[in-house]
Amino acid sequence: MINKFVSTLNEAMEDLENGATVLLAGFGPGTPEHLVQGLIASGVRDLTLVANAGGRDDGPIAELLATERVRKIICSFVRPASVAARLFTAGKLELEIVPQGTLAERIRAAGAGIQAFYTPTAADTLLAEGRETRVINGRNCLLEYPIHGDVALIDAWQADRWGNLTHKDSARNFNPIMAMAAKRTIVQTSHVVELGELPPAHIHTPGVFVQRVLHVPA
């Protein structure tokens, strides 16, 4: 019988490796904060973190970065007043800034087996300097590569034992695409449901993309 539920945070975070690329979902809501605590507690280091933004002065991303076990962050913006900005300025954090839509599409591409794509986004900007561009249908476009994760940390509203998920309202954000793009997708879910309880037409992330699920009651 397939059962992707694990009963402890330690079990959820088992076998994380140093040097891993971690996809961290969330845009305000939809951030798996409990799993971030597990990542910090696991002690893994030399991480590459992929997230929408570089976090603030407090909160889950700030706490993770403050451990100085993240080598590089890939995100769409960093607030000037944040742990990320201070670490970057001090030379303790590498930073790759990616336009938010390109970030989402690079993650989706990884999950979908797309090896590269061209987009006009950022083609005529500083972010394109030294990179491959090409005029397609009269528009200057920038070559972009997928972002694969070793691990994805995902938030869900409901989950069943196959790992089928729903996400609440705008808490969906990066969760379905990051779940697709990682070798191991670890989920924290607010609610547990029986297999068959989720209407098949209403499953946002099918269990094929999910490896482990931890129940973290909201």
């Binding site: 933004a53 570089g54 769409s76 913006f77 960093v78 607030r79 000037p80 990320a84 900005a85 970057f88 300025t89 930073l95 800034i97 990616v98 336009p99 938010q100 839509g101 390109t102 006009p120 986004t121 950022a122 083609a123 900007t125 500083l126 972010l127």
Partner: peptide, 21 residues
Amino acid sequence: WARSPNEPVKQVGGAMDLAVG
């Protein structure tokens, strides 16, 4: 998105995607 090419931290967000799309 930036007042100088040398700003240490960048705040691109989704503006480049929206502007061209």
